[in-house]
Design a protein around this nucleic acid. Structure first.
Lengths: 164, 164
DNA sequence: GCTTAAATGCAAATATGTAGCTTTAAAGAT
DNA sequence: ATCTTTAAAGCTACATATTTGCATTTAAGC
């Protein structure tokens, strides 16, 4: 049975953050792209935020650290970071792209009513056999399991509606 | 190994569609909600579209069948249908909510570059042990596996860029 | 430091989703 | 079949999320 420690997402510690930033520099060099101050600040900010922020949420957080930064820059940088796979895009049921500082294998618990979206680690989901999609021309990088349902808040709201 | 029949999503046949519409009527009655012509047309349209349409894509398709219909109505009806679980929201990495005519267990292949999103059936993904999330107050309804990576088109584009 | 192209910043456009309010019509009662 | 009630449709305006084009700045190699 699952333990409560499966749920929730911890922040990255300092050395892990530094390693990620070094990795980002390396990838930029390798591909002849630029490691600008903005991109670095944006990356650091995403690594500090743990709850799958949208681009605008990242923008708000970044604007505190680097007041002059443009919204567009944040959108473009996030896309760039995702292309480099230093962060990833999260698949979720809402409108607005979400970014995930975790790049390694893990899964998500997702509320289909309010789109709450939290990390979930669960051994039974790891090491599954991935289908062969080469005939389709698709290159698989990883997989994520979405456990879908309704969160506590939405359950309470729904039962209140019904008792009215 | 996976066969190619795992990939792609077939349309629903006529009897399956009719059953789904009856189920919709039943749920509306049960809950004292209305089975309007618009909602029925919108449901039928989603059942006919197979590729996880956005609300606007549904609106365009519906507008052909029912010219006067308002965009807002489509947004609201899709939400309603998802609440009844006659259709579901799909989790994907783009901006814009996607709807899925398939309600039963199945999985998805998703391109993290262009957000292409196709159905995937794969035995190894079925019957997994779901973690116990009751302590968290979360009520699980089902799960989906997202196999993530890059589609043929994006692979080709990327390699072209590099050879420039 | 100088050069150059990639990236930023800015402004405007587009895409996506929501709210308030009036009118229409679904569903049960008469 | 008509009447009544109220949920839902339609319309307009607004809010949020994202993209695009272009002038300006700046990272990175010489």
């Amino acid at each position: 049975m699952a333990t409560s420690s499966e749920l929730g997402g911890g922040d990255l510690d300092t050395s892990e953050k530094e390693a990620r930033i070094r990795e980002f520099r390396r990838l930029c060099r390798e591909r002849g792209e630029r490691c600008t101050v903005q991109r670095r600040i944006i990356l650091e900010t995403v690594l500090d935020l743990d709850n799958h922020p949208s681009a605008d949420q990242v923008f708000d957080a970044v604007a505190d650290r680097e007041p002059g930064i443009a919204r567009t820059t944040v959108y473009r940088a996030l896309d760039h970071l995702a292309r480099l796979e230093v962060i990833t895009k999260a698949c979720h049921p809402g409108s607005a792209v979400r970014f995930d500082p975790r790049t390694g294998p893990h899964h998500h618990l997702v509320c289909l009513h309010c789109n709450e979206f939290v990390d979930l680690d669960h051994d039974a989901f790891d090491g599954l056999t991935i289908p062969d999609t080469s005939a389709y021309g698709f290159e698989v990088s990883d997989y994520r399991v979405h456990v879908r349902g309704m969160c506590r808040n939405c359950l309470e709201k729904t039962s209140k509606e019904e008792s009215k």
